[in-house]
Design a protein around this nucleic acid. Sequence first.
DNA 1: CGGAAATACTCAGTGCCCTGATTAATCTGG
DNA 2: CCAGATTAATCAGGGCACTGAGTATTTCCG
Lengths: 154, 154
Amino acid sequence: MAAADLTTHPGHLARRLQQAHYLLWNAMVSEEITSPQFAVLNTLVAEPGLDQRTVGERVGLDRSTIAEVISRLSRRGLLDKVRDPQDGRRSLLHLTDEGERTHRRLTVRTARMNQVFLAPLTADERTVFFDLIRRVADAAEGLRNPDEPQVTPR
Amino acid sequence: MAAADLTTHPGHLARRLQQAHYLLWNAMVSEEITSPQFAVLNTLVAEPGLDQRTVGERVGLDRSTIAEVISRLSRRGLLDKVRDPQDGRRSLLHLTDEGERTHRRLTVRTARMNQVFLAPLTADERTVFFDLIRRVADAAEGLRNPDEPQVTPR
DNA sequence: CGGAAATACTCAGTGCCCTGATTAATCTGG
DNA sequence: CCAGATTAATCAGGGCACTGAGTATTTCCG
């Protein structure tokens, strides 16, 4: 009795949206490099030499997950990992030439995939789509870190 | 050079949204039962006796994942799994009393959590939020099964 | 009837995602 | 200066998500 309607549950919709994206990514972008892996490459293109924890923060991955993703990228020779001589706890990350080439190649394909993914929406709707999701995600993340100012600097 | 802006990548936003939901679920609903597990319980409340594959279809999980989720729920005594005497390939699923109690208890908490999760949006915005996500997810799923009629019967 | 095709499920393998505990290095205050 | 707190990374463990291959059962058709 009284089963809930999952189509009005944001968590269920978020999961379905992510799954749909996963499948399209595999079909249109790459079967080797995943979307989170691309996010890491993209961050290191913008800010080479970041440490592991900060990269995780940029792309929204916790310490354990970012360690796994980086270890896979490193194993495939897409990035280098060296101990910070100034602070022996940190590992500093830099893309290899191969890593930069891969990023460049996938950037083009990712843009194409996003076009297909968002095709059902008009330009105005896409703006709203981004805005609504961002607001919900940001607010929920804010609940986790009550110490941070409500508008995160940066 | 030329790093992409991930805040305009729907896949990245979808992942962040799901992670935010995961954390809130853990904090406000249950640390034992996950959101996909609740979705399975919910489906079996509405339609007892479904087979495994159909449940997976209802909640959007592939054959392997639904098998794992069901095995966990079964191990915890929340559902029973019996071979269909009419068709020896199928396993038919029914909630136990404990499973129904758990579903009832979590339904209340889930509703509360959704309120908190969607708090940043007005009532109108929530409607748009659901509509946009559903349209994008449905369209992407449609790309996978080109044989299905564009408006799925049911 | 009987073999080929389809179907439901399982298994192995890869990757993402989190928490809690541990280890190593740095920083801080008395 | 040095003991305790903090921080970066690792490790163990549980769960979600997919693909490809394999098994058992049923169905379809000649």
